[in-house]
Design a protein around this nucleic acid. Structure first.
Lengths: 172, 172
DNA sequence: GGAGATTAGTTCAAAATGGAACTTTACAAA
DNA sequence: TTTGTAAAGTTCCATTTTGAACTAATCTCC
């Protein structure tokens, strides 16, 4: 199949899956870059979090918290608010749910009695071992169309864009 | 300022704005690509839609519908569901709100009496002329860190990724 | 022509989300 | 030392979102 044939097939697949409108929104609008990023984000997260909910009873905020704690034990709820942009009570409620489910434990901070450092429990680690591979597999599927070299380029450009966000994002 | 100094400054800005956790989640995890895409999407859309809500009384679904109709008049609600992944009643309600606000009008399809083609009214065009530049400006800010050449590369890679989505996204 | 499955859109009610107000704690300035 | 402001987290309640059930219309198969 020639390169042109592949391109045509991809376009037809897009129209079949998402409708003819998708071709316009993703290719022919001034907002096509923002649209593509949101399009990817929406169709990546929607189904995977729905699946996690059905299979493990884990909500999106809960997974996000568990995954953050895997990589930085001792976080407080506010740290997670800052990195997700979610309101305090959403994170507070999800933390309460995770405590109740036994996936996290809450400590105290001798230097700041307001802060409540969180860590994963054994059960928390265990559920993550089951859940993370599903999200990783989906990320792998998302990246599959790019060669290793293209992915390295994409990584570099995306990182550059993200690390410039303090220039245009004002935290609440 | 050397390249290394700039990189360090960007890292410090990220930690200041989003917390130290952001550096880990965006650079040192297996899910960093998915995380970055969602991070960009969340911090792009959250504030801009909040701003549109406050200034114009337009919700996110409403803007999405208006913007789609600008580019493809005559769409039906189901077309918008497919390209956004949103449930039917969310789009149905937003369409009702837009009808009530006078931003869209609803037609009939002689070939399918169930379908209700939508078009923008004069007022709809007008509100978009005010709203779109705000979203565009935010997209420009988001892209500002990339040179024209880098943006062309990013465009190409992002498009390749998005147009392969039918390989791993199953519509509902 | 009729029956059954599917689609387009609407409505309802339950679930989820988020703004605001609250308590407790910390910190800075006078 | 006191006061005022701000931060960390919790709770409440209004609003938003979404799954499910519904109606009307279409399409396919027998």
């Amino acid at each position: 199949m020639t390169h042109q044939d592949k391109s045509l097939a991809a376009t037809e697949d897009m129209a079949d899956t998402f409708g003819a409108l998708s071709l316009v929104m993703l290719d022919d609008t001034d907002l096509r870059h923002a649209w593509r990023i949101n399009f990817l984000a929406n169709f990546f997260t929607g189904p995977v979090y729905r699946h996690l909910g059905e299979k493990f009873g884990i909500t999106r905020p809960e997974f996000v918290i568990l995954y953050c704690l895997e990589h930085m034990p001792g976080l407080v709820a506010q740290d997670i608010c800052r990195v997700t942009g979610q309101p305090k009570n959403s994170i507070s409620r999800a933390v309460s749910d995770l405590l109740e489910k036994g996936y996290v434990r809450r400590g105290t901070d001798p230097e700041d009695k307001r802060a409540k450092p969180l860590t994963l429990t054994e059960v928390g680690w265990s559920i993550l071992e089951h859940v993370s591979p599903i999200v990783k597999a989906r990320q792998d599927a998302m990246r599959a169309a790019l060669t290793d070299e293209e992915l390295a380029q994409f990584d570099c450009l995306l990182r550059k864009m993200v690390f410039a966000m303090p220039d245009w994002v004002t935290p609440e």
